[in-house]
Structures are given as C-alpha cells and as structure tokens.
C-alpha cells in the first residue's frame, strides 16, 4: 500500500495524543491550572493535528461532514464519532480542570474510554480489510492500542507504566510482523484464484503501458528491500532507546524528552512499514506478489 505521509502522521500523532488523554482522563496525573493547560495543549495538538492531517488525504473534503452518517456499518464513520465525542468530553473535563480547578472524575473516565475507543476504531479501519491480509489480523488493533497507550504513558510522565507498555508494544509489533509475513499465503488468494485459469498463470501483458490509481495506491513495492533494516530501526527507536534512556538516566526532564522523541520517531517508522509492506490482493492482477504463493 502507498504510505501516504498524511495518513502515517495522522495515525501516529493522534494515537499518542489520544493515549495522553486516556491517562489524563483517569487522573494519572490529576492536574489543574497551568500544568493542566500545558498537558491538554500537547494532547489536543497531537490528536487534532493528526485528524487535520487525515483531512488532507481526502479527494473531496466538502463532503467530509457526511462521514458521520454511516456508523452502523462503517468503521471510518465510527472513528469520526468517537473522535468528536472524545474531544468534546475531554474538552469539558479539561476546561473544568484548567479554569475552575475542579476534577469531575467520572467525566474524565468517560473521556478516557472514548479516547481509547477512537484509537480502536482507527485500527479497525485497517484490520477489517480482507483484501490486505497483513492488516486483517488481531495484532493490528493490538499494536495500535499498545502504541497509543505507550505514547500516552510517556507523555503523561507515568514512567513505570511507560516502561512496561513499551516492552509490550515491542512484543506485539514483532508478533504483527511475524504473523503478517504469513498472512498473504494464509488468505489463499493467488493469481490462479484471481483469474480461475488452469495451469501456472503469469501476467503476460498489463492493461496499459503506464501506471494507474490502483498501481500507485495499492501495488506499492518501493522500500520492501530495506524492510528488515527498517524493522530493526523501528524497534530500536520505539522501544530499546527510550527504555534504556529512562532506566539509565531516570525520570528527569531531558532524558524524558529524548525518550519521547525517539519513541515517536520509532512509531512513525513502524507506521510507514505498516503501509509500505502491506500487500493488496489486487496486485495479483498486475503480476505482483509472485513469491507469496500459498503452500
């Protein structure tokens, strides 16, 4: 799949932003006044900034408001509802904490659960797609949620939780990669099932000499040769370096900033790989995924 920068930035940043809102909602830490203002500013900048970035991905932005209509069937519509609900509830919670010094705990809990639900609905947009077997597995929502919680714990200064969650995130990411490498063969789509022709089938001639929307968007091949190196880089930046920095230097400001930046950079690399490595079955009609034969 084509790794569109807008979508990668959206899912990485807003994931961390909603993760931070999750911890603030449950009162880890309970903050008021100026401290609360700074925390919520960071959380909203990440969450809303990410959502705005996703809006740039649309071909016909004026109809974006219609995406609230199909929550019964569409995960993308559910995501839109969850995001707005989470931002409104947490906005009220934040306003009470910042301006009135009052913490209404149940309001925060509802906002926290809605924040995490937003991340879950985002992940299900990808995990529901049978056409992209690498995404169509339980590890996909698991790693979106783990990344969001780990980022949120880091940003909210819950160092012990962050250390555990980052290790969990590393394990889930490895699980997603190992399982993901087998998913295409497991799904069973081959050039033979795509064409239903007998014998060993190969593409003889493409429908056209140039590229098209489908080959740009879904038959993206660049970068796969560096996939193994990028996986190591992603794990190092996302888990190993932040964990090491926090364990060696302790929970002080400078090490924490290094850990947060390294972690977010690692999540971006991991999210880039999530797209660049994903194989869409339509590639079979364009002669791609030849090495992914079942059996």
């Amino acid at each position: 799949m084509h790794p569109a920068p807008s979508v990668i930035i959206f899912s990485s940043l807003s994931g961390a932003g909603f993760g931070l809102l999750f911890f603030l909602g449950f009162g880890f830490p309970t903050v008021t006044g100026w401290v609360a203002f700074v925390f919520y500013l960071i959380a909203y900048a990440l969450a809303v900034g990410g959502l705005m970035s996703a809006l740039f991905h649309l071909g016909n932005k004026k109809n974006a408001v219609k995406s609230y209509s199909q929550w019964r069937t569409s995960w993308l519509s559910r995501e839109a509802w969850c995001a707005v609900a989470a931002l409104l509830v947490m906005g009220l919670h934040a306003a009470l904490q910042v301006f009135f010094g009052t913490t209404v705990a149940p309001l925060g809990w509802i906002g926290a659960i809605l924040s995490l639900a937003t991340v879950f609905t985002t992940s299900m947009i990808y995990a529901q797609l049978k056409t992209i077997p690498r995404w169509n597995q339980p590890a996909t929502p698991a790693f979106f949620l783990a990344a969001s919680l780990a980022g949120g714990a880091l940003l909210s200064g819950n160092v012990d939780a962050a250390l555990i969650l980052m290790v969990v995130l590393g394990a889930i990411t490895a699980w997603h990669w190992i399982k993901g490498d087998r998913r295409f063969a497991e799904a069973g789509s081959t050039i033979e099932t795509a064409t239903r022709l007998q014998g060993r089938v190969s593409l003889w001639e493409k429908p056209h000499t140039g590229e098209n929307y489908l080959t740009h968007e879904m038959v993206y091949q660049i970068g796969r040769k560096h996939a193994a190196k990028l996986r190591v880089i992603a794990l190092a930046l996302m888990v190993v370096i932040p964990v090491a920095v926090l364990l060696i230097f302790g929970p002080h400001h400078m090490p924490a900033i290094v850990a947060v930046l390294s972690h977010l950079a690692g999540v971006l690399v991991q999210r880039w790989l999530f797209f660049a490595e994903a194989e869409h079955v339509v590639g079979l009609y364009y002669g791609a995924h030849g090495a992914k034969r079942a059996g």
Partner: peptide, 27 residues
Amino acid sequence: EDACMGCGLCAWACPYGAREMDQAAGV
C-alpha cells in the same frame, strides 16, 4: 458522487481493483 468525500477506503476494500478515484474530480 454528491456524497463521496474521496477517502478511497472502498477502493481498498475491493479485491478486484474495480474502483478508481478520479484524480481530477476527487471522487
């Protein structure tokens, strides 16, 4: 087309490559 926002998710969901986003109209 009056309701399409051009997110492209339906094209991702189709295994056959039957849907193409028009690059001029964005639908």
